[in-house]
Design a protein around this nucleic acid. Structure first.
Lengths: 207, 207
DNA sequence: CTTCAATTTGACCACCCGGTAAAAATCACG
DNA sequence: CGTGATTTTTACCGGGTGGTCAAATTGAAG
């Protein structure tokens, strides 16, 4: 599974440079749209030299995807079953929105992969991701059943958080075209707080 | 601007077949990822024959995009300033979710285009789309100011509707991986009703 | 300075892909 | 059936792209 990790300083440095460059190019052009020449040039290396570090374009893309998943799932992992439900969920929303703001390329790369049918990430999604989501969905369901938050469909709540937060990164061009020069994130943060605040509210006509 | 419309029966039939095939392929592989051979084969034509109907790959993609926009914007256009605010918005949500359900390929094609920075749709987005959105946002803002719905940020409300509904089409692979074999749409419909119902609710601590 | 391994380069290749040209086949119509 | 326009096919091309290979260069260590 895990091949021998990079050894020398040159290896670690160059692998990092390549991954950074590849993230940029893959995110903005998609897998097929990206070329090894572009990535190599953006990394300041020659194409054969790049291929010395990563066996193939595919291997490079997979490496990025693997690096990505930890970062990507961290906010959901941090959701604490022992915490205050409403606060935990709202924090997750904020952390996820921060991801869109601070890592838009990662978001777009991931979106690209899913859009194409997840040809290279399918196993992670059906495995690690699904497990984590089911796990946290159970937590949320318990909170809901205990009346500590309003009645929610846990899975669809999670989908909503993903959709709403990632939208600002994935559809950035559209958002910016409509909002003009303004930075959308401050308003988005307030808005998402309001949306999920309202959804988690315990129904007023409860006893 | 508009070139001479198709004349003969063969033209209309074949153009339609090609557009259908191209929608399929572009949606699932992206612009760069799609090949003319795939599209031609999927349409049951030879590549040169396809190029007899559309001058280039780019022209074909643009033609699809143009066809798409009317369909895509129809639900928002239908939002009636004279209608009952809450009902109008909730209907828009439902219509948009129906779009994801019945036209997932169109949704993914569009998502692909935006993700890549809207190289071929930029003008439509900055023009037609922005105008429409600003228009409807003003309507929503008026409703909100009149106290007929809760206080909302109209633009971000619209973004939220787009994000939540399109998510089920664009990230279908992920949704299905997590939900298993179940059709997500029935639950999604109920959930989105609940989400936007809660958001539009007039604050309980109003006088 | 030597020496061996790690790294980088330059030259190259086979394949794919968008697009063209021109001949061949088909169609519409009198 | 004849004829001119429309449609389809066959053969082809040039550029781009992922990937290879062997030689050259550089780095680490005694």
């Amino acid at each position: 599974m895990t091949d021998t990790p990079p050894r020398t300083r040159i290896q670690t440095r160059n692998r990092a440079t390549i991954l950074e460059a590849a993230l940029e190019v893959f995110a903005s052009r998609g897998f097929r749209g990206a070329t090894l020449d572009q990535i190599a040039q953006s990394a300041g290396l020659s194409k054969p030299n790049l291929l010395y570090y990563f066996r193939s374009k595919e291997a490079l893309h997979i490496a990025i995807l693997e690096d990505l998943m930890d970062l990507w799932l961290a906010p959901l992992r941090e959701m604490d079953p022992e915490g205050e439900p409403r606060e935990e969920i709202l924090r997750y929303v904020r952390r996820k929105l921060d991801m869109s703001r601070n890592h838009p390329r990662e978001s777009r790369l991931f979106a690209n992969e899913i859009l194409q049918g997840a040809p290279r990430a399918r196993s992670v999604i059906e495995g690690e991701l699904k497990t984590l989501v089911d796990d946290k969905a159970a937590v949320i369901a318990a909170w809901s059943a205990a009346g500590r938050i309003g009645p929610v469909d846990p899975h669809h709540l999670i989908f909503s958080i993903w959709a709403l937060t990632q939208h600002y990164a994935d559809f950035e061009v559209q958002v910016r075209a409509i909002m003009g020069g303004t930075d959308p994130y401050p308003a988005a943060e307030a808005w998402l707080d309001r949306v999920f605040g309202a959804v988690l509210e315990i129904s007023r006509d409860a006893t």
